[in-house]
Amino acid sequence: MTSRTGATAASHPVLGVPPAAPADAVAYFGASLAFHADASDVAAALAAGGDPGFVLLDSRSTESWDQGHIPGAVHLPTALIAEQAPRLLDPAVPVVTYCWGPGCNGATRAALALALLGYRVKEMLGGFEYWAREGFPYETSEGAARRTADPLTAPVAAGDCGC
């Protein structure tokens, strides 16, 4: 197949493997959204006030929690989920997990542990790192904190990226 620039699909890695058929893409991306939420959407749901319809769960250690965590999150390290989740979480309420950031799969492990116990669960993409980098408020052992939004991760002048 030749593109309008004359390049063949096999001549570069982007289209070396052709895109999925539309129906397959719908299934894949729909499933992805069923498993993931992003920091901006979580922040908007929490900022709207009232019950957001989910529990936000920080699966990191106590030291990490003290270093910074999202206000209103439940602290439950992954290693303690099997023992403490039934006491702390309502199985009828979906759970959104987070850990440090994109280089950490702790939120994925926590989501798996919760799913194995029968909870409906999503993972917050970007974790605490992107929460802080996008300029959302967080709490530390010393009190409330907030950073200026990183212009590479969030719009500086607008409250919404439009995506």
Score class of each variant (00 low, 15 high):
Met1His: 11
Thr2Leu: 09
Thr2Cys: 00
Ser3Asp: 15
Ser3Ile: 04
Arg4Ser: 12
Arg4Lys: 11
Arg4Cys: 07
Arg4Met: 08
Thr5Met: 12
Ala7Phe: 10
Thr8Arg: 06
Thr8Phe: 04
Ala9Gln: 03
Ala9Met: 09
Ala9Val: 04
Ala9Gly: 04
Ala9Lys: 05
Ala10Ile: 13
Ser11Arg: 14
Ser11Asn: 08
His12Ile: 11
Val14Pro: 00
Leu15His: 10
Leu15Trp: 13
Val17Cys: 08
Ala23Ser: 09
Ala23Ile: 06
Ala25Lys: 02
Ala25Tyr: 00
Ala25Val: 02
Ala25Arg: 01
Val26His: 07
Tyr28Glu: 01
Phe29Val: 01
Gly30Met: 06
Ala31Val: 00
Ser32Glu: 13
Leu33Ile: 02
Phe35His: 15
Phe35Ile: 03
Ala37Met: 15
Asp38Leu: 11
Ser40Trp: 03
Ser40Ala: 15
Asp41Thr: 11
Val42Ile: 12
Val42Asn: 05
Ala44Met: 07
Ala44Cys: 05
Leu46His: 09
Leu46Cys: 11
Ala48Cys: 10
Ala48Ser: 15
Ala48Met: 07
Gly49Ile: 00
Pro52Leu: 00
Gly53Met: 09
Phe54Cys: 08
Leu56Trp: 01
Leu56Asp: 01
Leu57Tyr: 00
Leu57His: 02
Leu57Asn: 00
Asp58Thr: 04
Asp58Gln: 05
Arg60Trp: 03
Ser61Lys: 04
Thr62Met: 13
Ser64Cys: 14
Ser64Trp: 14
Trp65Gly: 09
Gln67Asp: 15
Gln67Val: 04
Gln67Ile: 05
Gly68Leu: 10
Gly68Cys: 09
Gly68Arg: 12
Pro71Asn: 04
Pro71Trp: 06
Gly72Trp: 03
Gly72His: 05
Ala73Tyr: 01
Val74Met: 06
Leu76Glu: 01
Leu76Ala: 00
Thr78Tyr: 03
Thr78Pro: 00
Leu80Met: 03
Leu80Lys: 08
Ala85Tyr: 07
Pro86Asp: 12
Leu88Gly: 03
Leu89Pro: 02
Asp90Thr: 11
Ala92Ile: 02
Val93His: 13
Pro94Ala: 08
Val95Ser: 08
Tyr98Val: 02
Tyr98Gly: 01
Tyr98Met: 08
Cys99Val: 05
Gly101Val: 03
Pro102Phe: 12
Gly103Lys: 06
Gly103Met: 08
Ala107Trp: 05
Ala110Gln: 06
Leu112Phe: 14
Leu112Lys: 13
Ala113Gly: 10
Leu114Ser: 04
Leu114Val: 10
Ala115Trp: 07
Leu116Lys: 14
Leu117Glu: 10
Gly118Asp: 13
Val121Ser: 01
Lys122Ala: 04
Met124Asn: 07
Met124Ser: 05
Met124Thr: 04
Leu125Val: 11
Gly127Phe: 01
Trp131Tyr: 14
Trp131Lys: 09
Glu134Ile: 09
Gly135Lys: 04
Phe136Asn: 02
Phe136Pro: 00
Pro137Ile: 08
Pro137Lys: 02
Pro137Asn: 05
Tyr138Glu: 14
Glu139Gln: 15
Ser141Phe: 10
Gly143Phe: 15
Ala145Val: 12
Arg146Gln: 14
Arg146Lys: 11
Arg147Thr: 07
Arg147Gln: 11
Thr148Tyr: 10
Asp150Ser: 09
Leu152Trp: 10
Leu152Ala: 12
Thr153Asn: 12
Thr153Met: 15
Ala154Val: 05
Ala154Ser: 12
Pro155Glu: 10
Val156Trp: 03
Ala157Asp: 06
Asp160Phe: 06
Asp160Ser: 06
Cys161Arg: 07
Gly162Met: 06
